[in-house]
Structure formats: structure tokens, C-alpha cells
């Protein structure tokens, strides 16, 4: 049985904008799924359809096998963590957390048990009688999380919950969310535009663009084996090159004739390789490329090199040393198994 499932869900807004087209997604119980994409890709719309704030224009939503397409948010077994936290400004931390259980008429002892446990869990026991505006951003985020969990929901929906926090805090709260998920065992659907957040937290990543799903897969899968140019480019950085097929194992590219170990997909438009795939200090065995370096940027752990060749401007590769020991040109090898074929357009 799936915890949450969308079947052919589309959403067209009144002004004619198609936010989602035919989304099919199944989420298993206890799974942590991230909806990843740039702003306007439809990820938040999909989340709000799961929460019940929007009704899909076509298609169905099922929760635990039951059709909940037309159930309003207040009747669904989902709880949401909002981007702005959306804490009730007139209620204390404790009252905020108790809001949901009170609405659902959970009896008093049970309610207080949940409150105390959650306050301990998110380390806010000292702040229970404070109003939200007396708390820091990270504390407010934790109250929002506790408030959602107080409902004991089977699904928790996160709408870019960390986007208002600074980088250090973001990493800490990220770990806390994963910890709480493991402890309470809820299913999580997490919307973000931050690819490193998606890669670090998820069991599966759903990459979206223009209202469509580009690729669904485990973090390693979407990073290592992107299926479309969009996915390759959006997650990490990728070099995309047009190619002509010579035979099943050889392609002609602006970098020269390259041997590949994957068979070219008939729909593929580009080959793709990542900056860290370049092997330095190897000068034989085929797939050797030499090019002038147009720019270099020292990044600490490596040096970012930019090379330009006719038909392929601005290719990037990571030189695993300091900037000073690079010459005017770079010679490197592209391992055949690291060259992927991707569909789609370059944005």
C-alpha cells in the first residue's frame, strides 16, 4: 500500500496557467521524498494538492488507498510545515503546538503528553509560554515542526522550511528533521529548490520542471545517471555537449571522437559529464582531451578550470590541486563509463 499517491494529476489555474501536467507519483509509508526544482516548476502546487489547499483540475489523490481528492485540508491526515512557519502570532509556543490536537478533540492528558514530549524533542521546554515573535528563526522553525507533529500525522508536508535560515542553522535543522522522521516514522514530502538539501535528506528525489516530472530516483541515481539535460544541469554542474553517433560505442563531439561504454539512447540529444569526472595525469588509453584554459577559480579543495573549444563553450572541470600548478592548457581523460546520454533541451 502506498502512503500517498497522485494519479494523472493536472492543475490549470483560472488565468490559464498550467502549473502541473499529468503527475504520477507514489510515496511509500515512511519514505522521505523531495520535490526539487526551480521556482515556478509546480512543486509547491503539487504539495498544496497533497495538503488539500488546491483541488487538481484533473486526476486523483489517494491516501492509504482511499480517494481524498475532494477532502479539504482540515479533514486530511497530513500536516504541513510552511515556508514562513505560519505560527499563530497571538498564541504561545505551547498553545501553537496544542492547536491541532484541540481542533481534533484529543483528550487533555494525551494532548499534554504530546506537548511535553515534543517540547523536549525540539529543545524548547524553556520557551513554552513565549510568543513566537520572541523566538529566533531556528526556534520558530522548530515550533512549526512540533505543531505539525502534534497532530500525529501519517504524512508531513514541508514547503521549503529551511529557506529563511542561515547556512549553518539550515544544516542543523536538516539533521533534526531527519532525526524526528526516523523517530516518529512519518512519511515526508519535502519541497525545496536547494539541490544539496535534496541530495542530503531524501530517500528519493523528484526533479520537476515546467509542471512536469523530469526524473524520479534515489539521490545517487539522479546525480550519477541524469536522464535529461535539465536534471544534469540543475543538480550539481554538468558539461553538456552535442554529439553525432558513429557506432554503438563511439560518438563524435566538439571535444573529439570519444569512446562510451553506455549505448547511445536513440532519443538522446547530448552527452553529459561532470567536472569531477576528468582524470588528470593520464595520457593514453583514448578519450584524451587537451585544451587551453580560459579561466581558473581556486575553490580550496580543487581549482575550477574553464576550457572553451569550438562548438562547446565554457566546459568546466575540477583540477584537484592549487591554482598555481596549472599550466596554460589542460590535458585530461574522460572515462568512457562516466559519459552519459541525456534527452531534452539545454535551458
Amino acid at each position: 500500500m502506498t502512503a500517498l499517491r497522485s494519479i494523472d494529476v493536472s492543475k490549470v489555474f483560472e488565468d490559464g496557467f498550467t502549473a502541473l501536467a499529468d503527475i504520477n507519483l507514489s510515496v511509500d509509508p515512511g519514505e522521505f521524498v523531495t520535490l526539487l526544482g526551480p521556482s515556478g516548476c509546480g512543486k509547491t502546487t503539487l504539495l498544496k494538492i497533497f495538503a488539500g489547499f488546491y483541488a487538481p483540475t484533473t486526476g486523483r489523490v489517494e491516501q492509504n488507498g482511499a480517494d481524498v481528492t475532494s477532502a479539504p485540508p482540515e479533514k486530511r491526515d497530513t500536516a504541513m510545515c510552511f515556508q514562513s512557519y505560519a505560527l499563530f502570532p497571538h498564541l504561545t509556543v505551547a498553545e501553537n503546538i496544542e492547536f491541532g490536537p484541540k481542533q481534533n478533540r484529543v483528550d487533555r492528558d494525551e494532548r499534554l503528553d504530546r506537548l511535553n514530549e515534543l517540547l523536549r524533542q525540539v529543545d524548547l521546554e524553556r520557551h513554552r509560554e513565549k510568543l513566537p515573535n520572541k523566538l529566533s528563526g531556528g526556534q520558530q522553525q522548530r515550533v512549526a515542526l512540533a505543531r505539525a507533529l502534534a497532530m500525529r500525522p501519517s504524512v508531513v508536508l514541508f514547503d521549503e522550511p529551511l529557506s529563511n535560515l542561515d547556512a549553518k542553522l539550515r544544516e542543523q535543522v536538516r539533521r533534526e528533521i531527519r532525526g524526528l522522521q526516523r523517530k516518529f516514522g512519518f512519511t515526508a514530502i519535502y519541497v525545496t529548490h536547494d539541490q544539496s538539501e535534496a541530495l542530503a535528506m531524501s530517500d528519493r528525489v523528484v526533479v520537476m520542471s515546467g509542471g512536469k516530472v523530469e526524473q524520479i530516483g534515489a539521490p545517487e541515481e539522479v546525480y550519477q545517471r541524469p536522464e535529461t539535460a535539465f536534471v544534469a544541469d540543475f543538480i550539481g554542474s554538468a558539461n553538456l555537449l552535442p554529439f553525432d553517433r558513429v557506432d554503438d560505442h563511439v560518438v563524435e563531439t566538439p571535444l573529439g571522437r570519444l569512446t562510451v561504454s553506455n549505448r547511445p539512447d536513440p532519443n538522446a540529444r547530448f552527452i553529459c559529464w561532470r567536472p569531477e569526472d576528468a582524470e588528470f595525469g593520464v595520457s593514453e588509453g583514448g578519450n584524451i582531451v587537451t585544451s587551453d584554459i580560459s579561466e581558473r577559480a581556486y575553490q580550496g579543495a580543487y581549482t575550477d578550470l574553464h576550457i572553451s573549444v569550438a562548438g562547446a563553450p565554457d566546459q568546466r572541470l575540477h583540477w584537484p590541486g592549487g591554482a598555481s600548478c596549472v599550466g596554460q592548457s589542460a590535458t585530461f581523460r574522460l572515462p568512457p563509463e562516466r559519459i552519459r546520454f541525456v534527452r531534452g533541451e539545454i535551458a
Binding site: F53, T78, M80, M151
Partner: peptide, 24 residues
Amino acid sequence: EVLDAARDLGAGSFARFRKVIAPL
């Protein structure tokens, strides 16, 4: 988002008025 949060936590129209809109 505050009103959406109230809905999400199970408050219907009247509860949203009484517990969120009116006090605010």
C-alpha cells in the same frame, strides 16, 4: 499561510474565525 496552517491543523471556517481571525 497562517490561515492555511489553521485549516491544515483541522480548523473549519468558524473555528478559523473564532480562533485566528477574531483574536488577530
